[in-house]
Simulated scan of single mutants.
Amino acid sequence: MIEAFLAAFDALPEGSFTGTADGRRYVVTRSGFSGDKVQKLVAEELGGTDYISLNLYRLASGARLKPCEMPAQKVVDFVLALRPDPEVRR
Rank of each mutant, 00 (worst) to 15 (best):
I2C: 06
I2P: 01
E3T: 04
E3A: 05
E3L: 01
E3F: 12
E3N: 02
A4M: 07
A4S: 12
F5H: 12
L6Q: 07
L6M: 03
L6H: 07
L6C: 01
L6N: 04
A7D: 13
A7L: 08
A7K: 15
A7V: 09
A8N: 03
A8L: 07
A8V: 08
F9H: 11
F9D: 05
F9V: 06
F9E: 12
D10A: 12
D10C: 14
D10I: 11
A11E: 06
A11V: 10
L12A: 08
L12F: 11
L12I: 15
P13C: 07
E14S: 15
E14N: 11
G15M: 14
G15D: 07
G15H: 13
G15Q: 07
S16T: 13
S16R: 14
F17Y: 05
F17N: 11
F17H: 11
F17D: 02
T18I: 03
T18K: 09
T18H: 12
G19K: 09
T20E: 15
T20Q: 14
T20S: 15
A21H: 06
G23E: 10
G23I: 13
G23C: 04
R24N: 11
R24M: 09
R25W: 15
R25L: 05
R25E: 08
R25I: 02
R25F: 10
Y26K: 02
Y26F: 15
Y26Q: 04
V27M: 12
V27D: 12
T29H: 15
T29V: 12
T29Q: 13
T29L: 12
R30V: 08
R30I: 02
R30W: 11
S31M: 03
S31I: 01
S31G: 13
S31F: 09
S31C: 10
G32M: 10
G32Y: 05
F33H: 15
F33E: 11
F33Q: 10
F33G: 00
F33K: 05
S34H: 15
G35L: 07
G35P: 07
G35Q: 08
G35K: 09
G35W: 14
D36A: 14
D36H: 03
D36G: 05
K37Q: 06
K37A: 10
K37G: 08
V38M: 14
Q39E: 03
Q39H: 06
Q39T: 01
Q39M: 08
Q39L: 02
Q39Y: 00
Q39P: 05
K40T: 10
K40C: 04
K40H: 06
K40D: 09
K40G: 01
L41A: 06
V42N: 04
V42P: 04
A43L: 05
A43M: 06
A43G: 01
E44G: 13
E44W: 05
E45P: 01
L46G: 00
L46E: 02
L46H: 08
L46C: 07
G47P: 00
G47L: 02
G47Q: 00
G48F: 10
